[in-house]
């Protein structure tokens, strides 16, 4: 197992070339041409939305059109302000090409759905239908987000802590390794979702069962990677610390754990990915709340707009969680050379 984890570790440690966007190359112009183009593309969204009546009956078309206009205006103002915005200006400049593509994509989507009706309903709702979900179903969607976040954080935190403690113990102590290793080999590779039926009748509530499953999915990779991290600490580190008077407890806390940290973070990333999958399944199968459940419910009612809306939120949340983990890692592992930026 340590070998495969090591190869995965490598994917997180590679350094790529630093990105420069096409927009930054021309940002020496007084008024950013790219900013104007982005503004135009979003104005295009407005224009398409207002050009003719919808094929179907969509209540938020006007809101959508004016919303796009607001984005266009904002892009215009920012590109006029240009260099005077400093850091924020650079941030914007870096993203303008994406803003342009996004505008074009939205305009096209709007055109082939609401305006021309080329794509079959209810499978392909127009963008204003998603906007409608966000505005009118805010309560339910928001509650689902909260439920998911709560479940995810509880399960992940428990799993990460247990994984960390188990990994350090078996990496450090031979006798802990003797007892835990076979259990780990037997239980670890089993997908956490396979426990679902058992968990739901063993635990008093579907909520606690879900926490257990998420924690299980998180704990396995964290344990294995922490373990391999602790096991691969060079013995010369211990020699140095021991000649300087370190106690075993000091060796664990101040030598083994920090030295194993890069591995540990690979485990935390893998655990995060695995736990997302379990979260959604657990919510679909058991817990009557959360984004997974919302997806299930939307599908049951053929409310595809709700489904897409929830999917977008879910992807933002998952990506946000990964970003957060990367930020924590960058802070803690700033001593390493060339850490990848997310």
């Amino acid at each position: 197992m340590p070998t495969s984890s090591a190869s995965r570790a490598a994917t997180f440690d590679e350094t790529g070339p630093t990105e420069t966007s096409p927009a930054q190359a021309v940002s020496r112009l007084p008024v950013s041409g790219w900013g104007i183009a982005a503004s135009a593309s979003w104005l295009g969204v407005t224009a398409v939305s207002l050009a003719r009546d919808d094929v179907g009956d969509w209540s938020r078309t006007a809101t959508f059109a004016y919303g796009a206009a607001v984005v266009a205006l904002a892009a215009f103002v920012v590109s006029l302000a240009g260099a005077r915005l400093g850091q924020a200006g650079t941030w914007f400049a870096h993203r303008t090409p994406w803003l342009i593509v996004l505008g074009l994509g939205l305009a096209l989507w709007e055109l082939v759905t609401a305006k021309l009706g080329w794509l079959p309903l209810p499978f392909f709702p127009p963008p204003q239908a998603l906007l409608e979900v966000y505005l009118d179903d805010f309560g339910k969607l928001g509650a689902s987000v909260l439920a998911s976040v709560k479940l995810q954080i509880s399960g992940y935190a428990i799993g990460a802590v247990i994984g960390f403690l188990t990994g350090v113990s078996i990496g450090w102590s031979r006798s802990a390794g003797y007892w835990v290793h076979p259990v780990l080999r037997f239980i670890g590779p089993l997908p956490a979702t396979a426990w679902l039926p058992v968990a739901f009748f063993l635990f008093p509530s579907s909520w606690s069962a879900s926490i257990f499953l998420i924690a299980l999915a998180t704990a396995f990779p964290v344990t294995v990677l922490t373990w391999s991290g602790v096991a691969s600490v060079p013995s010369s580190y211990y020699d140095v610390a021991r000649t300087l008077g370190a106690t075993p407890w000091f060796l664990i806390r101040k030598v083994a754990v920090p030295a194993a940290m890069p591995h540990m973070f690979v485990g935390l990333f893998m655990g995060l990915g695995a736990s997302f999958a379990v979260l959604v399944v657990a919510e679909m199968m058991g817990v009557k709340a959360g984004l997974g459940w919302y997806l299930q419910w939307a599908q049951g009612w053929a409310a595809y707009a709700n489904m897409y809306a929830a999917l977008i939120v879910m992807s933002l949340l998952c990506s946000g969680a990964i970003t957060l983990l990367f930020k924590v890692r960058d802070r803690l592992l700033s001593w390493q050379k060339g850490v990848v930026k997310w």
Binding site: Y237, V240, A246, P258, W335
Partner: peptide, 30 residues
């Protein structure tokens, strides 16, 4: 091992996560 007998190893073996000062402070800290 005892801090009354300190070794400077053939390889410096500094802890990469500690600054120079914190590396030097390792003995007193331990």
């Amino acid at each position: 091992p005892d801090p009354s007998r300190v070794v400077v190893f053939q390889d410096p073996t500094l802890f990469p996560w500690r600054t120079v000062r914190d590396n030097v402070a390792l003995g007193p800290e331990a």
